[in-house]
Nucleic acid binder design. Structure first.
Lengths: 233, 233
DNA sequence: ACCTGAACACCGTTCAAGT
DNA sequence: ACCTGAACACCGTTCAAGT
């Protein structure tokens, strides 16, 4: 009987003891090879030469495993360059995010699914967004314009979904989300933006963010840009 | 024992004979109620008061069922208004698509998943895109600019993914896709665009569509628009 | 010829039994 | 206290047996 050797099997052969990092790394490799739909706890265990239940000591459940995979990937995105104008910095960062998503074509879908289900994105995603907001603020954007900007860039250009700041009512609050004070310290730009928006439109319940307005803002920005190009043709 | 009555159960109670339409309608209602992840062949059958295997006479398999659901929803999008400029027509159409997606929050995900897996979108999606291209062409856009435009609008604004015209190598060819001649007759605008692009960049293998260029086109269009807004602030 | 129950090969996760 | 096999409640789909 011939054994077909995959990259994942190679990982299994190393005698290193099981660790959260090894579980996550193997899961990412398996997802790269066969897509997320082929990723199962049983398969990861098999690739590691371990019984399925052994994974549950390093990872609470499959959702938590996917969160860990996301964070590992988002950490691959280059940090923002310093000493340039905002446009160059944003452009490079977004192209770096895109390269990561091209390396792991299943990642965008997993990030989006996670953001639809839970109130808070994973820590690495939060950090990415926070530093992105910081670039715009340093470039002289008002907090309101940064808010709209993040909606415009949503999904397509950040590589993450427009569900980002959208508050769908029935999302589970994150059980291990940091308390507000720590949140504000760790993600100052996100916090400032959220507070400005909440203060700005105190009449609206929820996040105080008008999805319809943001959608039309992005739509009109795009249509105006296209009109200018057509006139130049 | 108290029976909890859902909308789907109500459908089941009607004595109408099973039909493809009833299967699709019930599936849409169930997905609206509980999301796609809760949608199973067994559950649909239960809601219809039928044995699971009975569904397979009206629907080849679960993928084909999802395709049918998509087509039913895309048909809900308003047809383009006539007698206005391109901008008004596009704007209204996109907002109509958005309303559909807000009614069925699971739809975008299903459409995207389908487009990642198969070479051809479902017929209703093809028709939607074709007529959208038609609006731009009638508005005086060159075929090249329409091409970039569709990429810019991808995902976020069409409500469908950027994977649209992207040719990932290992997508299954659609078994029941119409032959090229019929395709050209049914979707004239899509065909014209595909031919122009293929002719334009004959050197590139594949669809002759440079994903990286398109991504940067959309990125720069957006960044330029933001810069103009920031200067106006 | 049609219909359908049982079965197959999966899945994530629980839990009790074994060490 | 740690580890893990069996089991539970699912899943989409095949297939043979019954009508």
């Amino acid at each position: 009987m011939v054994e077909i050797s995959t990259q994942a099997d190679a990982t299994a052969r190393s005698r290193a003891p099981l660790s959260r990092q090894r579980v996550l790394d193997t899961a990412v490799v398996l997802a790269d090879e066969g897509g997320v739909e082929a990723l199962s706890m049983r398969r990861i265990a098999q690739a590691l030469g371990v019984v399925p239940m052994a994974l549950y000591k390093h990872v609470a459940n499959k959702n938590e495993l996917l969160d860990g995979m996301i964070d590992a990937l988002v950490a691959e995105i280059d940090p923002p360059v310093t000493g340039t104008d905002w446009k160059t910095a944003v452009r490079r960062r977004i192209l770096s995010a895109r390269r990561m998503l091209l390396r792991h074509p299943w990642a965008a879908e997993v990030i989006e699914a996670r953001m639809k289900a839970r109130a808070t994105p994973t820590p690495a995603v939060m950090a990415y967004l926070d530093s992105m907001i910081g670039i715009f603020r340093a470039g002289g954007f008002s907090i309101e314009l940064v808010h709209h900007t993040m909606h415009v860039l949503g999904s397509r250009l950040l590589g993450f979904s427009q569900e980002l700041f959208q508050d769908t009512p029935d999302r589970e609050p994150d059980p291990d989300a940091p308390p507000p004070a720590e949140m504000a310290a760790r993600y100052p730009h996100i916090t400032a933006l959220a507070m400005a928006v909440a203060h700005d439109e105190a009449s609206v319940v929820g996040s105080g963010c008008d999805d319809q307005f943001e959608f039309e803002f992005a739509l009109d920005l795009t249509l105006d840009g296209l009109e200018r190009l057509r006139e130049a043709e």
